[in-house]
Amino acid sequence: MTAYEKLKAARHSHRPTGAEYIKNIFKDRIELHGDRRFGDDAAIIGGIGFLNDIPVTYIAIDKGADIESRIKKNFGCPKPEGYRKALRLMKQAEKFSRPVICFVDTQGAFCGADAEERGQGEAIAENILEMMGLKVPVISIVIGEGGSGGALALACANKVYMLEHSVYSVISPEGCASILWKDASKVEQAAEVLKITAEDMKRLNVAEDIIPENFDSFGEMCGNIANLLYRDVKELSALTPDEIREERYERFRCFGVYSENK
């Protein structure tokens, strides 16, 4: 598959949404709402549930499964209150020593005037800052689109996974094409040059590994994801809280390609 075909697959409306992964992976779930400041953004859902025998906090960007819920969820483009809700749940998880599991699926943070007014940039900045300091394990899975800062705001994790046909990018290929070639229709080339596929992420160490997709046996696929998450949570929980944080810092500290003449 070309990068563009993967992009289309990642955006496909029949793809399982964040809510479906949560339903299939965690048991005895309690959903929690609101950012305690402004509202409850339906684009981000979160709560507490069991991953096997371990209580965890789960957070997902959810695009919605039908047109009605997609409108309600703003097509998976979170607003500042969504990011602030996610941060509230993460800080709560830290207080009660619960690991945090995030599912990322967004074309990007919402770009409306109301989002700007309420500090979209500040909300994402605060999430990234605080996530980099969390003393509990954080694992993020990109299940569809990983769109720029709006995705990173839920992906400053100890471990990041990509679903087979998910993508992760600094800018939408459409945006890149219109800047680069003043022609938004050159999406295919842009998708290629931006390096957005799961394989690219693994090669660049942006993701630890790629999770195979099998939507025909979705229950089984989620069972495998649960096993993977359980293994990682167990492994990370053996570290001290400070070590967990330091491990995450070192993970991100390595990113960058440059030369240096000393």
Binding site: S148, I171, L204
Partner: peptide, 24 residues
């Protein structure tokens, strides 16, 4: 972010923020 460095430029946001957090 610098589009020409793809997702690596996105990762700089997390890298810098980690250092800001430690300093803070």
């Amino acid at each position: 972010a610098r589009m020409q460095e793809g997702v690596v430029s996105l990762m700089q946001m997390a890298k810098v923020s980690g250092a800001v957090k430690k300093h803070s």
